[in-house]
Design a protein around this nucleic acid. Structure first.
Lengths: 357, 357
DNA sequence: CGACTTCGAGTAAGCGGTTACGTAGTTAAG
DNA sequence: CTTAACTACGTAACCGCTTACTCGAAGTCG
């Protein structure tokens, strides 16, 4: 690179002051046409890229929002476990940011080192959106004291933290409830098992609560705890389903699985045991990742508006940046059950059941 | 937010100069233990987050690398067409950046507005990695004159631009060639059609070239142009396959499709015409997106090391940033064919054929 | 035709860090 | 005891851009 040029060189080359150059670049106004042209030409000739740091320093705004998320596949190599969830959120965040003239700075926390990363990110951005699992609750709270933060999918945030924190989440509870109700009402299943995610996953908890609610509404027996736990990966789903099937005399008539990836694992276990889905055992997932549509049978699941969550989160930080003293709000986005074949519905019925009418 | 504090306040509160505070923060050294503690405490008490812009300005380095990619789904709403390719690249880039103490700033160019976005990105980063299709060749070249840039999957870059540009790509040609060879050698197919991507896609071109090479090596008739074109989406694949089948008396024995998403569309068209895959028509894809494994039949395809591409690209920009005058290199990463059922191989054979022995 | 705007453009004071350089005060060496 | 070499820390000059003021010139108006 031929040593970066500065605004001074541009100013000198076009025979004006730096102030004028600056005016021309930021808002075409404040200069005569002739001057503007001279400046523009000089800038182009020099290949001048204004220094963003200097600009940010002067205007006290970086035009960047940070996105912190957890890198789950700690194992490293496995490509399969990529949680599409994060990717969608990233895309949504990018969209909202770009359309507001900002950009998104991303970083993934891997085991432990998260705290430092978070602070280093914080120093470079106007605001932060932090995905569940990236940071401990206390770190989250303390960082939120210094920078506008919105937490994504983190309903667990302690009340005290809530004061400074904004939260965006999907209605996991309602989604699971609608889904389970579909199983009960439409298909008449009564023996419905639940495979949960990791023990301390708020998402998984919410889904379990919704599931229980539906059972209770139907006057069915309501279990205290999930029938099995997985870790949200396909392998975890296999293990959980295996455990579940082995632990019982007869398999359940249906099983509500904590997310799509585990549901995929679960289905393959059933298949290998000669149990037909949905004929013998109906299976449902959660998330509606793109693979869900292509499974055979296609997976009935609950769609989370992942993209929208990313967008909303970014919009909220930006609003907070613009208006730091506004009261902090929370946002719960609706989920939607997507009926496909794995629950026992016919192929034709690809429509999606909407929320409570 | 209780008005951000500065290094001056920290310095004052701990009774030292800003220089000392700075020294403590950057490298724990250069100060006595007692002083260090006082500074650290003061910083924590104030919830001080050093201003990244000021720091970057002073050290002339942002610690950020930009990633520019095209947002393909111009239509907007459709979620399905999200090319997982980009997501993987993002993840790879993030990984390489974070492990080097940097972060990734992402932005997607949507139709046309790309140029401005690119420059605004450029002003905020140390270097840029730009995905194919984000920018016109001329814009690419001109921006590469002012900032270190590595282009991803952009073999088309004009020779002149090459001088300043670094390029990372996957060996699309070789992948397609190996794949086609597999079809010919292992399965003995002779009538093999090709469904290409968008007309001006370098990736698609390379794949077509590899396909032709394999046919030529086998002394089969070598077509001048692809049998049909799609746009890399599932719908595009459906249209292309439809066109292809309708345009011929008998369907081809096998068809090499430009990417996985189109292959999925193609397969559903075949199915709806009562043609069995792979019994009547074998189908292959390209990319190895996660859905490929879950299709029925599972899709034989070519894996691109998308994550590695993202990592490599970021590493290369960072090296260029550190050593601006080094000669620019290019990198072509190997691809790998992944044999599954859609080509006609038995279920058991889930292994992957490696590159030329 | 003098007073009042309006407009184009320059001056210079920051923005919040970093760091070369300078200076006591200590310790080690001669 | 003098001198050299550290060590711990302060001073102040940047880094490159924005923007509140200023100011002269040109246009407006009663």
């Amino acid at each position: 690179m031929p040593k970066k040029s500065t605004i001074y060189e541009v100013a000198h080359r076009s025979g004006v002051s730096t102030a004028t150059v600056s005016r021309v670049m930021v808002n075409g106004a404040g200069a005569s046409d002739a001057t503007r042209q001279r400046v523009l030409t000089a800038a182009r000739d020099l290949g001048w890229v204004p220094n963003g740091s200097a600009r940010s320093l002067a205007v006290r705004r970086t035009g960047i929002v940070g996105l912190l998320f957890p890198e789950l596949g700690t194992s490293g190599d496995s490509e399969s476990d990529s949680p599409l969830f994060v990717d969608q959120v990233i895309r949504g965040a990018e969209r909202a940011a770009t359309s507001a003239g900002n950009a998104v700075l991303i970083a993934a926390t891997r085991s432990a080192a998260g705290r430092d990363l978070a602070w280093s990110l914080a120093s470079k951005v106007d605001g932060l959106v932090i995905l569940a699992g990236s940071l401990s609750d206390t770190d989250l709270a303390s960082i939120a004291r210094s920078v506008p933060v919105v937490a994504l999918a983190t309903p667990s945030a302690t009340p005290s933290a809530r004061q400074k924190l904004e939260v965006v989440d999907a209605d996991n509870r309602d989604g699971a409830q609608q889904l389970t109700r579909h199983l009960v009402d439409v298909h008449g299943y009564r023996d419905i098992a639940f495979i949960a995610g990791p023990a301390r996953s708020p998402d998984s908890d919410q889904r379990f609560i919704g599931y229980r609610q539906a059972l209770q509404d139907a006057d069915l027996c309501v279990p205290d705890a999930p029938d099995a736990h997985g870790d949200f990966t396909e392998e975890g789903g296999e293990r959980a389903m295996h455990e579940l099937v082995v632990g019982r005399d007869t398999p359940p008539r249906a099983v509500v699985v904590g997310n799509d990836q585990m549901a995929m694992g679960a289905m393959s276990v059933l298949r290998s045991r000669q149990l037909r889905v949905p004929g013998d055992v109906a299976v449902t997932g959660f998330d509606d990742i793109s693979a869900a549509r292509h499974l055979r049978p296609a997976l009935t699941t609950v769609r989370q508006p992942m993209r929208e969550m990313g967008e909303a989160a970014v919009r909220m930080v930006l609003e907070r940046v613009a208006e730091p003293s506004a009261p902090s709000r929370s946002l719960v986005l609706p989920t939607q059950v997507v009926v496909r074949r794995s629950c026992g519905c016919p192929a034709a019925l690809t429509t999606s059941a909407r929320k409570k009418p």
